[in-house]
């Protein structure tokens, strides 16, 4: 494992910790998109089916379990926790995610490396992850007062994707036969989705202003 990959995974882990802490400490999930969290739950469930079929490393298994568990915890809080669920921006979080799920699934049926259930679901998770942040970005645009932690959450998630690209470049140069075109293209699309957010995040940070995204 190279430094970019490890740093990327750590960013991903931190992003989730930040979100858990924010919701738990403030007893509020204001500004957090339940739709994005549910999309991530679908992504993780479909991708980590190999937990049952293959063992890669203790690190790998632990991280997968953390991602699954934390995402379901957040969803549970937002849907059922008696204090937190009241703070959910239901009226603002209206992104119709079926318009993401269906095309990604159809694309995975057509464009995959092997037409088997496991492989199609895995490919579907790759495509879906690329766009899963969209409901969250739309919700941030609609939120006038983005709190720091929610902004940091999205920034950390974006950093994780950017670091994965560096990881792929590094692996491509150091490992023979290391190629995964579908993952690379989806990953680049996913990172592009964040560019606009990055621009406003860094600008607000440099100017010492509160983060807000233009509608």
């Amino acid at each position: 494992m190279n430094i970019f990959r490890l740093a990327g995974d750590m960013m991903h882990l931190f992003s989730i910790i930040v979100l858990l802490l924010k919701i738990n400490a403030t007893r509020s999930c204001r500004g957090v998109s339940l739709k994005t969290q549910e999309l991530y739950a679908i992504v993780f469930v479909c991708r980590y089916l190999d937990l049952f079929t293959s063992f890669i490393s203790l690190y790998n298994t632990t991280m997968k379990l953390i991602f699954l568990l934390s995402t379901f915890t957040i969803i549970y809080w937002m849907r059922f926790h008696k204090v937190i669920r009241v703070t959910y921006d239901r009226e603002q979080d209206t992104f119709r995610y079926q318009f993401l799920i269906l095309p990604c699934f159809l694309l995975a049926l057509v464009l995959n490396n092997e037409f088997s259930a496991m492989e199609v679901l895995w490919t579907f998770s790759i495509y879906l992850e690329a766009v899963a942040i969209l409901p969250q970005l739309v919700l941030l645009q609609r939120t006038n007062n983005i709190d720091n932690l929610t902004g940091n959450y999205v920034f950390l998630l974006g950093s994780y994707r950017a670091l994965y690209i560096l990881n792929w470049i590094y692996r491509f140069m150091t490992e023979p036969n290391y190629r995964q075109y579908l993952v690379w293209i989806s990953g680049i699309v996913q990172t592009i989705v964040y560019i606009d957010f990055f621009y406003y995040y860094i600008r607000s940070w440099r100017n010492n202003e509160k983060l807000s995204l233009p509608a």
Partner: peptide, 10 residues
């Protein structure tokens, strides 16, 4: 095509 062994990323 991709090799199955490559699925070591998260």
């Amino acid at each position: 095509p991709e090799v199955k062994l490559l699925k070591d990323e998260l």
